[in-house]
Computed example of a mutant assay.
Amino acid sequence: MVTAAVCAVVAGYRSYTAIAEWVADLPTDTALVLGIDAHRRPSEAMIRRLLQALDPEPLATAIGAWLAARIPAPPPGSRHAIAVDGKTLLGSRTRDSPARHILAAAEQHAGIVLASTDVDTKTNEITRFPALLDRIDDLRDMVVTADALHCQREHVAYLARRSAHWILTVKGNQPGLHQQLAGLPWRLVPNADRDTARGHGRHEIRTLKILSVATGIDFPGAAQALQIRRRRRRLDEPRRFTSDTVYAITDLQAHQAKPWQLADWIRGHWSIENRTHWVRDVTYDEDRSQIRTCNGPHVMATLRDAAIGALRLAGVTDIAAANRHHARNANRPLVLLGITS
């Protein structure tokens, strides 16, 4: 039934009722391949009870491991990068409880979620960081990127034990460290990388400067300081630029990563919003989902991640069009997932 639910989500179905309708409409031979009795299809109530009762974290770990085994190896001289980022499921809010919040780890290049964990109201993302990454078997030589909330000494100690590298954004939650980074002689440093991009009605110029900080930065393991400057303008307002400057630190030394790789990993972290969260919100309408009970919100988010991951591995860039393609033939989701009779 879980596999059937993933297939239905691949076809764009968003609710328990819709999944039950997809299962009810399956051709007999397709239902048998999925292990479903052709004459006794599961009802919406059965599917709802199952998905509400599932433990979402082992489910996400199993799906993440299945997807991770299919991610191509990085090119020689490069590394896998994992972005750690949180998302609130706005539709899960009820009169008596706040919206659920999920912390996820996604492989940047493939745009695939490898693990997720629930952040309940009694804790926050910081305390769930090790528990999340514990669900990924091997972090050796990978680069973990995270926003300023996770610029924590305990986190880098954990990543060192896992033999992983890191790039962490630094903002006002670490005022002393942020002041040290802002006070470095950046005006004397040439750009190490420059990139321009057009999209979403705007033009953006990004520059990266790098300084080695073997001493003088009060953060364990920091080897290089990074200054990222972004200048943006709307295409219909060519003379009006806005700019912002962000600082980051990394344990990677100059010989371990080229400037363009550091720039790619930093951009890759920000792009998780577009490649994962935006797709779940816009294509799957997640923030207006009426699924709110028990483990249902996290389980459905995990099924969406599974569908998006499988489609990404197949080379899909337009998830909405791929949903429609797989909805037109019940066997297509099975082929995508490699399911055969």
Rank of each mutant, 00 (worst) to 15 (best):
T169K: 12
I167M: 11
L235P: 11
D236G: 11
Y247I: 00
R229K: 07
I228W: 09
S163W: 11
F241M: 09
R162K: 14
L159H: 11
Q152K: 14
E204L: 01
Q152T: 10
G199I: 00
R194A: 01
L252A: 05
R202V: 03
A182D: 13
A164C: 11
G216H: 03
P185V: 12
R161C: 02
C151K: 02
H200T: 01
R233F: 04
A157Q: 12
V144K: 03
R233H: 15
Q179F: 09
I249K: 05
A148S: 12
Q227V: 02
P238R: 06
T196Q: 15
L235V: 10
F241V: 09
R234I: 00
T196L: 13
D218G: 06
T215G: 10
A222H: 05
R231E: 15
T196F: 13
H203W: 03
R162G: 08
Q224H: 01
L211D: 02
L149W: 12
T242K: 10
D195P: 03
R206L: 02
L168R: 04
R233M: 09
T242F: 11
A197L: 03
R229H: 01
G172P: 06
G221V: 00
V189D: 01
R232Y: 00
E204F: 00
A197F: 01
A214R: 04
G201A: 07
N191Y: 12
T207E: 09
E154G: 15
R198S: 14
T145C: 13
G216Q: 01
